[in-house]
């Protein structure tokens, strides 16, 4: 790691002020991706502003027809939350499958979506569940938030505060992990809710998480595994590496979608 200054603000307001002041700051929110990145000397921030322990960002509330999750809420907390398990069991199950137990004890939902790793799980949930991302500056629809690999709509100095997940009627996430890294090689989140039907895919796309309109339309006509089973996803734009061709990933999207619909019931 290169040298940096470290600050642990006591409030969100203080974090914003520190962020505005520093040369080339980075927010630290658990650090399960950021710290390994720094260890490899792949980033050289001037300041790390640690919001991972901010109590005001660590909460889960069920209100009305949605669950609100603070940005600094850890994956393990989401996975174990009675509110999430009750209203959005697919989201709880997704959180239980992120990384490994030790990673889930440190990693946060805000950190995960702000980083927008193309192989991470939460972006698929946000997109498929029509999540609202509340920042220190505005509210961003999930559809507008994820802008490609490691890119989001967040501006400099903007901090994710909370993610609101409206309750789905039916939802499930199926992940085919990369055999080596265990990140999603293909992860498909299907949902049915007030927003209609959504199918979001993580891991497979060169530009990060995306929706599959053809599957959404098919499921709107008939919510059943068979409805998506014969839909062939084009391989164009999908990742290819030693773990699998783009064609394989395209095929897995269909298989995982089918299984997710079956699991969602």
């Amino acid at each position: 790691m290169y040298q940096f200054n470290y600050a642990r603000p006591k409030s969100l307001a203080e974090a914003e002020a520190l962020l505005a002041k520093a040369d080339d700051p980075k927010l630290l929110a658990g650090g399960q991706t950021l710290i390994p990145t720094l260890k490899q000397r792949l980033a050289m921030p001037s300041d790390l502003i640690d919001i991972g322990g901010l109590k005001e960002l660590d909460f889960i509330r069920a209100e009305g027809n949605a669950v609100m999750i603070g940005a600094a809420t850890k994956h393990a907390t989401v996975a174990q939350s009675p509110d999430v398990k009750k209203h959005n069991p697919a989201l709880a199950a997704l959180a239980e499958g992120i990384g490994d137990p030790a990673v889930r004890h440190m990693g946060t939902i805000g950190g995960s979506i702000a980083n927008n790793d193309p192989a991470s799980d939460y972006p698929a949930a946000c997109l498929a569940l029509d999540a609202k991302i509340h920042t220190t500056k505005r509210l961003i629809e999930a559809d507008e938030f994820f802008k490609g690999m490691f890119e989001t709509a967040l501006e400099d100095g903007e901090i994710v505060k909370e993610i609101t997940f409206p309750h789905p009627e039916k939802a499930a996430y199926m992940k085919f992990p990369n055999p080596a890294s265990r990140y999603a090689m293909v992860g498909v989140f299907v949902s049915k809710g007030p927003w209609g039907i959504r199918v979001a895919v993580t891991g497979a796309g060169q530009d990060g998480v995306f929706r599959v309109k053809e599957m959404e339309d098919a499921l709107a006509k008939s919510w059943s595994p068979d409805a998506v089973a014969s839909i062939k996803i084009p391989a164009k734009g999908l990742n290819a590496d030693l773990h699998g061709t783009a064609e394989y990933r395209a095929h897995l999207i269909t298989v995982m979608a089918k299984r997710a619909v079956a699991a969602a019931g």
Binding site: P179, A180, S181, L242, H243
Partner: peptide, 11 residues
């Protein structure tokens, strides 16, 4: 070396 870490070398 393409498989230079546990991200790509499957233990």
């Amino acid at each position: 070396l393409v498989t230079g870490s546990y991200m790509d070398y499957c233990m």
